[in-house]
């Protein structure tokens, strides 16, 4: 395999094993209403220095996949029934707990959507940052403090020295999200998983935070998995995209191709529902129907009850991820027709 990304050109590091690769992951939850199949065979991978955006509607399994990678899945009710999560080619699901601990939190870090609830309200921001260095690297209080100030500077918290004793509620939403980024960066991880890092923020603050994240990623050559449902943010920062529906990847593609020529009817529907200027005064395009109930996912293609292109075969045969050119894939029987019109 010598797949080089043409857009990122020579700068993209060529490596045969991806930094992280998820293979055929299955996760289910045992609930009162039955078994909810939240993740049903997810495959995706990300290289160093690369940004993979994971897109999909609420409940499609984006966060559950991320939680499984980080080892923070609620078990029970959650259960991993199948699959591999390879970090530098090594399966984290089968390695020893000791080995796993060395990777999670250190080499892979996560940024959560809601910064306020993931920070401890009764501890100062500086203390929580410093804890990373004290616990993981055995630094003294003084060293940890100096490191924390450096990090706060790096994520552009003004007057870091003075504000290190402040509590989370004394920071604005954007500043708190920057503190979360600082914490994720503290141990210089190789991969960051950001789960809706800017959804709770305003556009102006969102722009600040996304810029910062992109800059730091470049500086450290980190891999970044960005989970979001904002098609605008994705277009701004992603190298490649994985679109999820009902716990599966239905389309994967470099960012440019997918916006211009989606190869899956669900992706196409998503892109078409964005309001555009020339449609003012007209009805917005809307994907009909409702997201599937995960305890009773439709047979065949899970999207078939809502798909405008569905044929009889769609209700019976599960579409595999068909290759669409060298770097793309679409889990649709009729991907050719989809991309064509």
């Amino acid at each position: 395999m010598t797949v080089t990304d043409e857009r990122t050109g020579a700068a993209a590091p060529v490596s045969t094993t991806p930094l992280l690769e998820v293979r055929d992951l299955h996760v289910e939850f045992h609930t009162r209403d039955g078994v909810a199949r939240a993740v049903n065979g997810v495959d995706y991978s990300v290289n160093a220095g690369e940004t993979l955006a994971v897109l999909g509607e609420s409940g499609s399994g984006k966060s559950v996949t991320a939680q499984t990678i980080m080892g923070i899945l609620d078990m029970p009710p959650g259960r991993i029934t199948q699959g591999e999560i390879l970090f530098h080619g090594q399966d984290m699901l089968t390695m020893s707990a000791e080995q796993r601990r060395k990777i999670r939190g250190r080499k892979i870090a996560m940024i959560f959507q809601d910064a306020l609830s993931s920070l401890n309200p009764v501890l100062s921001v500086g203390y929580q940052l410093g804890e990373m260095f004290r616990v993981h690297q055995g630094m003294s209080r003084k060293q940890a403090r100096a490191k924390s100030i450096e990090l706060m500077d790096r994520v552009r918290i003004p007057a870091a020295k003075e504000r290190i004793g402040d509590y989370p509620h004394q920071f604005s939403g954007g500043m708190r999200q920057r503190i979360m980024i600082a914490m994720a960066l503290a141990l210089e991880p190789e991969l960051i998983i950001a789960d809706e890092p800017t959804t709770a923020l305003d556009v102006t603050v969102q722009a600040q935070v996304m810029d910062l994240l992109a800059e730091l990623q470049r500086e450290y050559n980190m891999g970044l998995i960005l989970i979001t449902h904002d098609l605008g943010v994705v277009a701004d920062v992603a190298d490649k995209i994985a679109v999820m529906y009902a716990g599966r990847i239905v389309e994967t593609s470099p960012v440019h191709d997918i916006y211009a020529r989606p190869a899956h009817p669900y992706t196409k529907g998503l892109l078409r529902s964005i309001p555009r200027l020339d449609q003012k005064g007209q009805e917005l395009y809307a994907i009909k129907g409702l997201p599937p109930n995960l305890t009773r996912i439709p047979g065949g293609c899970a999207f078939h009850p809502r798909c405008p292109m569905a044929q009889d075969v769609c209700a019976t045969d599960v579409p595999l991820l068909h290759p669409v050119g060298a770097e793309r894939g679409s889990a649709c029987h009729f991907w050719k027709e989809t991309i064509g019109d």
Binding site: V203, T204, A207, G232, V233, A235, A238, L271
Partner: peptide
Amino acid sequence: QALLSAVPVPDPQARERRERIILTGDV
């Protein structure tokens, strides 16, 4: 003007063309 320029545009082609006004400081 700053608000509009910060809106992410769902078009990767626009990435290079866009001239964004990134506001400094907090509200």
